[in-house]
Protein backbone atom coordinates (compact mmCIF):
# COMPACT_ATOMS: atom_id res chain seq x y z
CA UNK A 1 0.00 0.00 0.00
CA UNK A 2 1.30 3.48 -0.84
CA UNK A 3 2.15 5.90 1.97
CA UNK A 4 -0.71 8.28 1.15
CA UNK A 5 -3.22 5.47 1.01
CA UNK A 6 -2.02 4.16 4.38
CA UNK A 7 -2.31 7.62 5.86
CA UNK A 8 -5.83 8.08 4.50
CA UNK A 9 -6.94 4.72 5.85
CA UNK A 10 -5.31 5.48 9.20
CA UNK A 11 -7.20 8.77 9.51
CA UNK A 12 -10.53 7.17 8.57
CA UNK A 13 -10.10 4.34 11.08
CA UNK A 14 -9.01 6.70 13.86
CA UNK A 15 -12.05 8.96 13.26
CA UNK A 16 -14.37 5.93 13.28
CA UNK A 17 -12.84 4.57 16.49
CA UNK A 18 -13.05 7.95 18.23
CA UNK A 19 -16.75 8.23 17.30
CA UNK A 20 -17.35 4.68 18.49
CA UNK A 21 -15.65 5.32 21.83
CA UNK A 22 -17.47 8.61 22.42
CA UNK A 23 -20.71 6.75 21.74
CA UNK A 24 -19.87 4.37 24.61
CA UNK A 25 -20.25 7.37 26.94
CA UNK A 26 -22.91 9.38 25.11
CA UNK A 27 -25.45 6.66 24.29
CA UNK A 28 -25.80 5.04 27.77
CA UNK A 29 -25.47 8.29 29.75
CA UNK A 30 -27.66 10.49 27.53
CA UNK A 31 -29.84 8.55 25.10
CA UNK A 32 -30.49 5.49 27.26
CA UNK A 33 -30.52 7.22 30.63
CA UNK A 34 -33.27 5.84 32.82
CA UNK A 35 -34.23 3.07 30.36
CA UNK A 36 -34.09 0.13 32.75
CA UNK A 37 -34.04 -2.78 30.34
CA UNK A 38 -31.50 -5.37 29.26
CA UNK A 39 -32.07 -4.20 25.66
CA UNK A 40 -30.78 -0.71 26.59
CA UNK A 41 -27.28 0.00 28.01
CA UNK A 42 -26.37 -3.66 28.55
CA UNK A 43 -27.05 -4.45 24.91
CA UNK A 44 -25.52 -1.21 23.63
CA UNK A 45 -22.21 -1.71 25.43
CA UNK A 46 -22.05 -5.31 24.21
CA UNK A 47 -22.70 -4.24 20.59
CA UNK A 48 -20.16 -1.40 21.02
CA UNK A 49 -17.52 -3.90 22.19
CA UNK A 50 -18.22 -6.25 19.29
CA UNK A 51 -17.90 -3.30 16.86
CA UNK A 52 -14.60 -2.25 18.45
CA UNK A 53 -13.29 -5.83 18.32
CA UNK A 54 -14.25 -6.29 14.65
CA UNK A 55 -12.74 -2.90 13.75
CA UNK A 56 -9.47 -3.76 15.49
CA UNK A 57 -9.31 -7.15 13.78
CA UNK A 58 -10.07 -5.53 10.41
CA UNK A 59 -7.14 -3.11 10.85
CA UNK A 60 -4.80 -6.04 11.51
CA UNK A 61 -5.95 -7.84 8.35
CA UNK A 62 -4.13 -5.20 6.25
CA UNK A 63 -0.78 -6.30 7.70
CA UNK A 64 1.54 -8.46 5.65
CA UNK A 65 4.68 -10.11 7.03
Amino acid sequence: MKKDELKKKRIIWVIWLVILIISAYFVPFVLLRGINQVEASFLYWTVFAVAAILSTIKITTYWSD
Binding site: R10, L17, L20, I21, A24, P28, S41, F42, W45, T46, F48, A49, A52, I53, S55, T56, I59, T60, W63
Partner: peptide
Amino acid sequence: GVGALGFELIYLAGLSLVAFFGP
Protein backbone atom coordinates in the same frame (compact mmCIF):
# COMPACT_ATOMS: atom_id res chain seq x y z
CA GLY B 1 -25.06 -2.23 38.13
CA VAL B 2 -24.51 -2.24 34.37
CA GLY B 3 -21.96 0.63 34.47
CA ALA B 4 -19.42 -2.04 35.46
CA LEU B 5 -19.94 -3.66 32.06
CA GLY B 6 -19.40 -0.35 30.25
CA PHE B 7 -16.27 0.36 32.28
CA GLU B 8 -14.63 -2.96 31.44
CA LEU B 9 -15.70 -2.98 27.78
CA ILE B 10 -14.29 0.51 27.22
CA TYR B 11 -11.03 -0.88 28.55
CA LEU B 12 -11.33 -3.75 26.05
CA ALA B 13 -11.97 -1.28 23.21
CA GLY B 14 -8.67 0.35 24.24
CA LEU B 15 -7.01 -2.65 22.63
CA SER B 16 -7.67 -0.87 19.32
CA LEU B 17 -4.54 1.11 20.30
CA VAL B 18 -2.54 -2.09 19.88
CA ALA B 19 -3.61 -2.28 16.23
CA PHE B 20 -1.56 0.93 15.77
CA PHE B 21 1.14 0.70 18.45
CA GLY B 22 1.66 -3.08 18.50
CA PRO B 23 3.50 -3.45 15.20
